[in-house]
Nucleic acid binder design. Sequence first.
DNA 1: TTTTCAAGTGAGTACTCACTCACATTTTAT
DNA 2: ATAAAATGTGAGTGAGTACTCACTTGAAAA
Lengths: 219, 219
Amino acid sequence: MHEEWLEELLKFSEEDGKFSEKQLKILEAAIEMFAEKGYAATSTSEIAKRAGVAEGTIFRHYKTKKELLLAIVTPTLFQSVAPFLVKEFVKEVFEHQYEHYEDFVRTVWKNRYKFVKKYLPAIRVLWQEIAFHAEIKKQLEAVFTEHVYEKFKKIVEYFQERGEIADFPVESVIRLTITTIAGFFAARFLLMPDYDWDDEAEMERTIQFLMNGLRKKEA
Amino acid sequence: MHEEWLEELLKFSEEDGKFSEKQLKILEAAIEMFAEKGYAATSTSEIAKRAGVAEGTIFRHYKTKKELLLAIVTPTLFQSVAPFLVKEFVKEVFEHQYEHYEDFVRTVWKNRYKFVKKYLPAIRVLWQEIAFHAEIKKQLEAVFTEHVYEKFKKIVEYFQERGEIADFPVESVIRLTITTIAGFFAARFLLMPDYDWDDEAEMERTIQFLMNGLRKKEA
DNA sequence: TTTTCAAGTGAGTACTCACTCACATTTTAT
DNA sequence: ATAAAATGTGAGTGAGTACTCACTTGAAAA
């Protein structure tokens, strides 16, 4: 029984893509249980039981429980910012792949929507544990400054020069864009997953809101 | 030694305001440690040590560790939506206390800004543990539908009728307003507390963004 | 075939956990 | 002053906890 979504998530893993059947079962069980009850409240014996594996097998693959957590969280973190890891990403903007900031936002939105739907439990683990583990927070900061910030900045400046979006500081434009999109995802999937959402309509409204909010005012 | 901020936070507590010195010490220590390491990773013996109290004393006041958590989280939850608990709150809007939606947003913003600065650790505990404890999530949902939603709805409809904000569904306007404000607070106090923020300027920009985003477009 | 080695096992280890209880002290009611 | 109630104590308890280790298994390398 192959866990395809899992193996895809683990692409950014440090291990060389060689995961045994039992190891995948361990990771799958750990993701589920960490997402439900949290890392600290989940015991390795429970994980072993759910994975159908002896407890010792976990520690054959991961020296400590925390190492198992990081084996889940690190790939998820990289997948979270995956669009920005693509080399041609910024180039596409400058080569008029995206005529407006809105086209760029729409592309990122749809891409991340699929991502969240696919890997929701792993994303939960990442966001729940980030508050308690300094290593994870540092990793996020590093990934953001190295891979996201500079690229995002160039894109924002490009559309600011064309007079399309307001002359807020770049950091503010980035923050407003991210919190608007992330705000939807948080409400949609974390806070009110059972509410009767019309995802398409809500996306349209939210993007309209974002673009009007960022639009440059005539002097 | 009196913990004034704590006693104020606990106003919404079920207990009748009679907290012994040691009980306050226990609550203070628990808030700090739960905020830092999380509920599950904090032991009652550690809390007792930091509070300068015997472990048994904790269980004299709270039957279980979870009851101690709820004694922190429930008052914080009510304080979080405190403006909406004031009876005259909606009336003020209709009696032209707030001429524009923007005035209303500004008032709430400043009020909640002070609140977050004052009680940050307790708020951390609430938001970190909400994911793991169904009781807390249910409490939040109940408080929101009972005290926040209906009042917020009336305010939004009032300004929609006056043609001041767009004819999005009320739920969407509420969501966009809350996620925009909460997005700032999350970035400011949770994700990047060490960044060099200009709070006044960022508030101005964010409110400008929010109002432009929600403004009704001419037909 | 024989050797080697990674993968898997589960009983065992030292330790921590939330919680209890018999008793001591302080506060309040009579 | 005395009884009664509330508050505080800390050693004790049994059920876990993360992790170890001597051992087994199966498949590939020599």
